[in-house]
Design a protein around this nucleic acid. Structure first.
Length: 273
DNA sequence: GCGCAGGGGGTCG
DNA sequence: CGACCCCCTGCG
């Protein structure tokens, strides 16, 4: 069991784990307060944050790995100052969600997780992903947690098998996606628009899911996922028609530049809470 | 209590 | 633009 500590600013565990970017971390209450337990990249971990000190107790991963996972190399204070004054609602959202950070998560896990998320709600998304991990993911030694399943494992399943996990019509998307991922691998570096187009070729991946994968799985903070909440936000803030996705995308680029994904997370969190 | 719409971080045909 | 697999909620 490795233990690492980091001095952090602009961070709150609840903001990080409950803003909808990840589905595998759960809060645990104990006498000393609250911590989060979960898994990523085949490592199980407990995450504590008190008085500006982040502590990671994990079954593996280097100090650099967790530093990168929590995006500690990015100065969110600086980002907030860049975004401040752009809109009074965003200013409020940044105060409310001061401790949001975009996790650097596994690409394949994000690919599958956000396919599961379509036309679905967060509690059930978490259940579905937990079922996927518990059924098809390797046990993480010394814990009762499971790693996210590999593409090899998922690609070998039949729809009938996967249907048992109550994933509904998403089953075929998941299997096809795992197969395709094994063929094409990670996307090569290119501009975000081209990435989005490439991702939309996966069955079950549309514009919204593609942007989530780009933002959370490829760490491109210029991606600006537009879901029903963001539609409402863009309507409230700038008066966009609810189905004018193009207009919203353009406005996000104009207002937030290449950190639209960061602004999106603050706004999304603010509207949901 | 129970049955039945309604809708959920969309996408496909 | 309607259907969708499933689950949870609210309402009669």
């Amino acid at each position: 069991m490795a233990s690492y500590t980091y001095k952090v600013k602009d961070m709150c565990l609840e903001h990080v784990f409950e803003c909808g970017q990840t589905f595998r971390w759960n809060s645990v209450s104990c006498e000393k307060g609250e911590y989060y337990e979960g898994a990523c990249q085949g490592y199980a971990a407990k995450i504590f944050l008190h008085d500006g000190i982040l502590r990671v107790d994990a079954t593996g991963g280097t100090e650099e790995f967790w530093h990168n996972y929590f995006d500690l190399g990015r100065d969110y204070g600086e980002l907030k100052s860049i975004l401040s004054g752009k809109h009074s609602t965003l200013d409020k959202a940044m105060l409310e969600g001061y401790g949001i950070r975009i996790l650097n998560q596994d690409y394949f896990e994000m690919l599958i997780s956000f396919i599961v998320s379509q036309n679905n709600n967060i509690p059930r998304i978490k259940k579905c992903i937990e079922a996927l991990c518990n059924t098809y993911g390797e046990v993480i030694e010394g814990t009762d947690l499971h790693a996210f399943p590999t593409a090899e494992r998922l690609s070998a399943l039949t729809v009938d098998e996967l249907m048992k996990l109550k994933l509904g019509y998403r089953c075929s998307y998941i299997i096809e996606t795992a197969k395709r991922y094994l063929e094409v691998g990670m996307p090569v570096a290119k501009d975000t628009a081209a990435l989005k187009k490439e991702l939309c070729e996966y069955h079950g991946v549309g514009p919204k899911v593609a942007d989530c994968i780009i933002l959370f799985g490829l760490s491109r903070v210029d991606a600006f996922p537009i879901d029903v909440w963001v539609k409402r936000i863009m309507n409230d803030l700038y008066g966009f028609d609810l189905n004018d996705l193009k207009g919203m995308q353009a406005k996000a680029r104009e207002e937030f530049g290449d950190i639209g994904g960061i602004a999106q997370q603050y706004l999304f969190h603010y509207y949901r809470s």
